[in-house]
Each structure stands twice: as structure tokens, then as C-alpha cells.
């Protein structure tokens, strides 16, 4: 196998090596790649779409169709994991384990048994002993809201600075995943359960595709945001800017939900118990 691998990579390496001497010099502003389409974007993005961040303008408007499918890719990854891993039929267990958070004692409760008084301090666990770490829980609890706020900033400010729906969505998803890691999956489900995550991911992409359809119904081509001008009470150029914001919000929602749902399914191998 090693030998085969060496032969293959030498062939691939040789093939890639062959073309490289004819490449334009690295960092050359006069290279052909920088002279054909890309100057158009740099010189016209602001007057076409009123978005100073050209990457955002190209991503969500000029090549917005790519981006819609990119969101669909991440959506299908989320659905694929759910489809492959989710276990719907649970083994019925006769006993359940609960941890008393203050003392760390684990209780085993037989079927039909009830928790003692003050059951708010008990938490269901799956193995005999799971550590309870107050420092991690409290710290992450403090951090999570700020992370979420930052995520919203990244989504909203994608027009003017590096950022946008994908980045913000991932950060927002990371906040929820942080919460799920520092506590456990069952607690995370109380904040954002499986169905809500699925619904949010579908709704996010649907917001994107729906905006495109709306443009089509208003007489433009698919995703031609300038046709939204009458609906948004602005001119065609600002309508493009607003259209970009709308689809970025959709992207953010979808990416957040898919990241969380991927984590739910991968970390618990589809069982949706306490997770990692």
C-alpha cells in the first residue's frame, strides 16, 4: 500500500509540478487572473450594490446563486448526519441514573420510582459517575451571551468589515455548542431542541431561496434583489444592499442551526442522550 501511495502521489505531484513554472509570479498585480473579471467587482461593487466589502457583494449578489447552493450544501450535510445517525427507537432501561449536583452523589432510580424532594438539583446522567465542574459551567455561562452578541455583530456588519452570514452563523453555533459541552446535551435541548434546530436550518435556506423567488415574482431574474426596491421603499441600489442583508441573515440562521444539529448527532452518535 505504501508503494502504491508513493507512486500515486509522485504522479500527482509531478502533474502539479509540471504546470507551475508557467504560473504568473506570485503576488503580481498584473497577472491575468487579476485583470479580467475581478477589477470589475472592485471598481463597481459600491456603485452597483452600495456594499463597501467587496467580498460580501460578490458572495451574496454577483455570485449569490453559488452562495445559495453553498448554504444548501451545509443544510444537506446536517440532514445527512441526522439521516445516517439518528436512532429513534430507544432501548427501554429499567433504571435511570441521577446525579445530585451539590454533593456529587449518583442515585439509581428504579422504573416507576420518583426523585426525592427538591428535584431541581438533580440531573439525569448516563454513566455511573460524571464529573460536575462548577467553574467550567459558570465561566461558560458568562461567556456565551457575549459570543452570541459578537455573532450578531459579525452578521450585521458584514457589509462594512470582514464577516457575514457564514462567519456569524458559525460563531453563534459555537456559543450553543460551548453551552452543550460545558453542561450536557439534555440541557442544551432545553434551549434549542432538535426539531427547532431542523426547522431553523430549513427556514434559513428557505429565507434565501424565498428572497430569490420573490425577485422572480416581481418580474426580475432569480435573486435579482434590485426588483425588491418597491417592496423595501428604496432605490434599486439600496435594495441590493438590503437584499444582501436579508440573505445573510438566512445564511446565518441556517449555518447556526446546522452546526448545532451536526454537534448533537455526532457527539451522541445519534442517541441524543447526555453527549460528550
Amino acid at each position: 500500500m505504501r508503494f502504491l501511495a508513493l507512486i500515486t502521489i509522485l504522479m500527482v505531484g509531478g502533474l502539479l509540478f509540471y504546470g507551475t513554472p508557467d504560473f504568473p509570479a506570485w503576488g503580481d498585480p498584473e497577472s491575468p487572473a487579476s485583470l479580467h473579471v475581478s477589477p470589475y467587482y472592485i471598481e463597481h461593487a459600491v456603485e452597483d450594490t452600495a456594499v463597501p466589502n467587496i467580498v460580501t457583494a460578490v458572495l451574496a449578489d454577483y455570485r449569490g446563486y453559488d452562495t445559495m447552493f453553498e448554504t444548501a450544501v451545509i443544510f444537506s450535510a446536517g440532514i445527512a448526519c441526522l439521516f445516517l445517525l439518528r436512532i429513534y427507537r430507544r432501548k427501554s432501561t429499567t433504571t435511570r441514573l441521577y446525579r445530585h449536583n451539590l454533593t456529587g452523589i449518583t442515585l439509581r432510580i428504579a422504573k416507576g420510582g420518583k426523585l426525592p424532594e427538591g428535584s431541581a438539583e438533580f440531573e439525569r446522567i448516563d454513566s455511573l459517575w460524571v464529573p460536575y465542574d462548577m467553574i467550567i459551567k459558570v465561566t461558560s455561562r458568562l461567556v456565551v451571551p457575549f459570543v452570541q452578541l459578537f455573532a450578531l455583530y459579525v452578521i450585521a456588519h458584514g457589509h462594512h468589515s470582514p464577516g457575514g452570514g457564514f462567519q456569524g452563523g458559525v460563531i453563534f453555533g459555537a456559543a450553543i455548542i460551548l453551552y452543550a459541552i460545558s453542561n450536557d446535551l439534555r440541557r442544551a435541548f432545553r434551549r434549542l431542541n432538535e426539531k427547532a434546530a431542523l426547522l431553523a436550518s430549513a427556514a434559513g435556506v428557505l429565507l434565501y431561496a424565498g428572497t430569490g423567488l420573490m425577485c422572480l415574482l416581481l418580474g426580475g431574474n432569480f435573486l435579482d434583489y434590485s426588483k425588491l426596491a418597491d417592496l423595501l421603499y428604496t432605490d434599486a441600489i439600496m435594495a441590493r444592499s438590503h437584499g444582501i442583508l436579508i440573505v445573510e441573515i438566512g445564511v446565518g440562521l441556517a449555518v447556526m442551526a446546522v452546526m448545532v444539529s451536526l454537534y448533537y448527532n455526532l457527539s451522541s452518535a445519534g442517541r441524543h442522550d447526555e453527549g460528550l
Binding site: A33, S34, V37, S38, Y41, I42, A45, I54, V55, A57, V58, L59, R63, D66, T67, E70, T71, V73, I74, F166
Partner: peptide, 14 residues
């Protein structure tokens, strides 16, 4: 040039 960055955002997601 912004275009390759846009394309690679897509590739990262993929």
C-alpha cells in the same frame, strides 16, 4: 482580488 476569496468561502463550507 475578491473573487478567489468568495470561491474559497464556498470551498471551506463544502
Amino acid at each position: 482580488s475578491p473573487l478567489p476569496h468568495v470561491l474559497m468561502l464556498t470551498a471551506i463550507v463544502v
